[in-house]
Nucleic acid binder design. Structure first.
Lengths: 226, 226
DNA sequence: CGGCATCCGGGAAGATACTG
DNA sequence: CAGTATCTTCCCGGATGCCG
């Protein structure tokens, strides 16, 4: 029954600086992570909850309301027979991706960053776009599939760039099946693929040589003081 | 009294995603704005308070502690006879500038962004680096000084780039004297320089033709839906 | 004046339970 | 599945006061 809320921003920074306004819009706790989870396509309320470890339904509802009011996302009803409700970024919302790229690139150099923590599927897949070393994929062409729990992704390397698409792994030269943290361990943690397979955390199908090459395409920037 | 400190991160996202870790470090209210105020050089506690309208001494102290613990800034004592304490970004802290650029570039397209609100001197000067249209300064060379309250800045246009230095306006071809919002009105709000001068909000000394040219070097991106 | 500690009120976040 | 209701806890913001 909360009809009236945003009469006047109670907690705006009142600052004309663009960055300050960004924080007015998406600076509340969890807001940016909700947006991150939608970067590769719309999701349902429950999927967002599952992919954001620690968020409560209460807060998720508030953030979705706020982000919709800000014009960052829209609540949409899928056509029958699905008829389920999903949340989807607006075109402007999708344009926020550089925010995640610069935040991530800057923060992974922190001495306190721990890459072994849980990681969502979207975080992993978007990290490939962010962290790829262009010089290592020059002239390269490949399609790499990922089966991460209930979601599937197809990553395409070509023309010196990396593209990511959610949906299926059809047409992949190579398919990884496992959890996002396991794959992150191989790509960013230097864990050998064979070790992950031995403990059943990862399955590799298709071009194994490509797999070994793939995990070396995404170098982490050096930690500060290193 | 408070001995126990970082037993376990009280409110970490617990997410290996780089962007999530960035929010662990600088996602608290005011943290990024404190960093922004230090982007052009160290400042004292009171200057930070004055330049961050609305922050309380309490919260500023907490943020400075947190940012120092994160390795973003250091507390430094100026040599005598100044002997006053200042806060200065670390080299890694200075590398956060792209965060402000992408946040700002994204958020100024928001329909709710109001460029007439208060603006700090640092916000204005860094916005020039962010918003300059490279094609409009090709082959251009100029030095523009700014006297903004107690601070002075020298902006150098040359080699297709914009540099900003804090300290003095010595050697400038043109000097603006006024408040940051007034100059923002001329550059981003399309307010004629003559109008601002007539109401005493701005003073222009030196190359007036350059002044007229200068205010057109920084086009705002179109608002969404426009 | 600069910097930090303390107390307090309001509100946002977190956890759990409950409903259509 | 998609939220709402409720309760507790903690953070934010303001005021005051201490100490150099």
């Amino acid at each position: 029954m909360s009809l009236e809320k945003a009469t006047k921003s109670p907690r705006s920074y009142g600052d004309a600086c663009g960055a300050a306004h960004a924080l007015d819009l998406v600076g509340e706790r969890w807001a940016l992570l909700v947006m991150r989870e939608l970067l590769l396509g719309p999701k349902r309320f429950s999927d967002l909850r599952a992919d954001l470890p620690g968020i409560s339904a209460n807060v998720l509802t508030q953030r979705l309301e706020g982000l919709e009011a800000a014009g960052v996302l829209v609540k949409r009803k899928l056509p029958p027979p699905a008829s389920t409700q999903v949340y989807e970024l607006t075109p402007w919302g999708y344009e926020s991706e550089p925010i995640f790229q610069v935040l991530g690139r800057w923060a992974v150099r922190s001495p306190t960053h721990d890459p072994t923590m849980p990681l969502s599927a979207v975080s992993l897949m978007t990290s490939f776009r962010t962290m790829v070393d262009p010089s290592r994929i020059e002239g390269m062409g490949a399609r790499v599939g990922f089966r991460l729990g209930r979601e599937a992704y197809l990553l395409t390397i070509g023309g010196g760039a990396v593209e990511v698409e959610r949906g299926s792994v059809t047409g992949a030269d190579l398919v990884f099946t496992g959890t996002a943290p396991a794959i992150a361990g191989a790509v960013y943690g230097g864990v050998p693929i064979a070790a992950l397979e031995a403990q059943g955390a990862l399955k590799v199908e298709g071009d194994r040589a490509l797999a070994e090459r793939f995990v070396n395409l995404f170098p982490l920037p050096p930690k500060i003081g290193a």
